[in-house]
Design a protein around this nucleic acid. Structure first.
Lengths: 220, 220
DNA sequence: ACCTGAACACCGTTCAAGT
DNA sequence: ACCTGAACACCGTTCAAGT
């Protein structure tokens, strides 16, 4: 009975962020509070503040943790420009759909940490090798990232916001569609019914193809 | 002295949402609380709940209010596809940069209300007229919207999150850049220095051009 | 160096009343 | 129909201590 068999692995920024991401993955963003996080780590809330200055920094840590999961080894320097860019975009998308609940955080906060910026550097390298001028490459990577985030959002929907007012995302979307008058929203209704026949992945590939085609400099 | 000269214009969903947007525009998202909003309207917090079910609905109202500001009259049915699409995207961007503080809300919540969906319908019509199959048009509009939002975010930066820890967005960005090793982040540093020479608008136009070119069906 | 206790100044929202 | 009062169950964070 020397020491309590508690999980006193000692706190650290890393352990805190990991647990935070675990909570977000399991129960959504709203479940992540400093108090809940602390209790999950078997510690008093204020203990966190020794390792993390505030909740915003915790969010930055989550962004970094998610972005770090992107497999940067996918970049094959020998492959053609469009293939490299698509591969990188797909790798990004994969980690986003793996952490759907963290999507709003990742999308809202521009990457601040080295870990989060490493995939950005990879994308920029690809764009440079593809002949995109340096001045344009930041917008370009922003556009690609925006496409990936937008596609991921379509796929995962947001459980953030309305907690759950007795309706699944599909239900709610269907309900909205039902209230739209066919005279005012013909295209929307047509698109909504057509889209259900195709996989989200196919839609993402469509958008990715269009974007990469547009970014590819005209062959000279 | 019949009645007090208070601004008792009677509450309404519309008035509540308008005041909410005013607060967000003036002081940022974090300043918008039900209690603050109520006091600004000269009313007790609970009065709001008669007109708005909860805060999430308030956010939806803000999204609708912002999206409704998009000038849909810009769509000239006689113009060529790419011109129409670009014009619509620019109109969207204009309202986003006019309400920078509301950007995270608009970007995070897919439009739920008819007012917010009207510009979406316009975009879908343009895409349909441009020959985009209905099944693909929703991704396409998502991509365009994502581009606009991404460009707007680059321009306005987020004052959400870290309140203000004694540093402007530019300062912080510069500080981050300073910590990056030139060996590991050569492209990022080059892009960051090159980008400052160009206006955000020029960057947006670059991305928009690329995207529209990619979306335009190959001439047959 | 690392963690705790107690407190402060807030939140959104429910529930029962008032008019 | 429209608004109020009082309360509940939370928040993030500061500040002074403990070891």
């Amino acid at each position: 009975m020397a020491e309590e068999p508690r999980e006193r692995t000692a706190l650290s920024r890393r352990r805190i962020v990991q647990e935070a991401l675990r909570i977000v993955d399991a129960e959504g963003l709203r479940a992540l509070t400093m108090r809940r996080l602390a209790s999950e780590l078997g510690v008093v809330p204020m203990a966190l503040y020794y390792h993390v200055p505030n909740k915003a920094a915790l969010y930055d840590g989550i962004v970094e943790a998610v972005m770090s999961e992107i497999d940067i080894s996918v970049d094959d320097l020998a492959a053609p420009f469009d293939q490299r860019l698509k591969k990188a975009a797909r790798a990004y998308r994969e980690v986003l759909v793996a952490h759907p609940n963290a999507l709003p955080v990742v999308a809202d906060r521009s990457p601040n940490t080295t870990g989060a910026l490493r995939p950005v550097e990879t994308m920029l390298r690809i764009l440079r090798d593809g002949g995109i001028p340096a001045a344009d490459s930041l917008v370009a990577v922003n556009v690609v990232a925006a496409l990936v985030q937008g596609a991921a959002r379509m796929e995962v929907q947001d459980d953030l916001g309305t907690p759950q007012e007795g309706c699944s995302p599909e239900e709610q979307q269907a309900r909205v569609a039902a209230t739209l008058s066919p005279e005012e929203f013909p295209c929307l209704l047509e698109a909504a019914s057509a889209v259900s026949e195709f996989s989200y992945e196919a839609q993402f590939e469509f958008g990715l193809n269009a974007l990469v085609r547009g970014l590819t400099p005209p062959e000279r």
